[in-house]
Design a protein around this nucleic acid. Sequence first.
DNA 1: GTCTATATGACGATAGAC
DNA 2: GTCTATCGTCATATAGAC
Lengths: 197, 197
Amino acid sequence: MVVSEGERAEGPFGTLTRSRPQQRILAAALDLIGSHGVSGTSLQMIADAVGVTKAAVYHQYRSKNDIVIAVTENELAILQDALLAAEADERPEEARRTLLIQLIDLAVTRRQWVGTLTSDPVIVRILGEHPPFLQFMRRLYGVLLDQRDDTKARVSAAIMSAAIAGSVVNPLVADVDDDVLRATLIELVPRLMGLDG
Amino acid sequence: MVVSEGERAEGPFGTLTRSRPQQRILAAALDLIGSHGVSGTSLQMIADAVGVTKAAVYHQYRSKNDIVIAVTENELAILQDALLAAEADERPEEARRTLLIQLIDLAVTRRQWVGTLTSDPVIVRILGEHPPFLQFMRRLYGVLLDQRDDTKARVSAAIMSAAIAGSVVNPLVADVDDDVLRATLIELVPRLMGLDG
DNA sequence: GTCTATATGACGATAGAC
DNA sequence: GTCTATCGTCATATAGAC
């Protein structure tokens, strides 16, 4: 608390600076959106969760949309290091496998949110409309596809990302331990891409 | 149009009878919910799409929730024949593979909706609260798991259903033909369960 | 930075005429 | 079966005091 109260993070979308009130709002929004979706989450719910009024929330963010974008930025920023490392790796198969494992780890430890990130209609629309997000996703898939861009590779990548993001929220695995789920996914998912042998 | 204006369908949830106005409402709701999610779809949007007022919609269905349930019933009913055939088959591996292919076919031909069915928070809640839905899903997974219920089998089933339902809505495959997508999925997905050799 | 209070509109749902 | 009109509630968002 010596220099600054804000928290900085270098993300793929410029430097993300969040004041402490902003951090609390984004944490509450992440949790609520993860379980109710964007359209099912109101600013009143977020304000209640933080313990302030709606007006206080609006003092930090100009609109609900801005909150959704900030939350999405935060989460994608987590992947930044993993992506940079994969892009720097000269062994493409190794890079893909490592990135895959980190994607699995993120999905398992943040189960609910990851499902929302990849399927909520509002977030999908935002991801498709914001150039920084689009470019980040392109880089991500670039590594997974290893520059190939035929139909089969694209379908494979779609299957893989869906398998990771969707399986972790399935009620069937709700009571499976994070560690066990992660290990099982790491064993099974690479089979899809022929990365296991 | 001689005997009845309603359309009957034997579903896993009793006999589904829909009058013609109801069919139009459910068709519009299916389309809108598929692209905006349940919370993002208002009764006004549904009424506008049908070309009537909200009050006319309420004359057919008592609540928005009832519409969502009816739409979900309709879609799951499509799977009924496939499930019955699979349950009657005495060769479990063959039964699983056939059911899997029909699931893939349904997902491909109704891409948007299937994503919503498996991930929309409201629908997931309804699926978990309505005993007929719960029982149907249990039967479905029963065939896919072949009665096994260890962690690995459950994770496998979760991966598979996520891979099918989630991959078809990925922007990466948005411009892939239904036929090509179906063929590629049928080739790749069974690898997950070791059903390909 | 947070509050009370409010503007404006959309929401789900209902009443009653035709 | 569809309409107009309306209810009460909640939505996003803003103004201005402390």
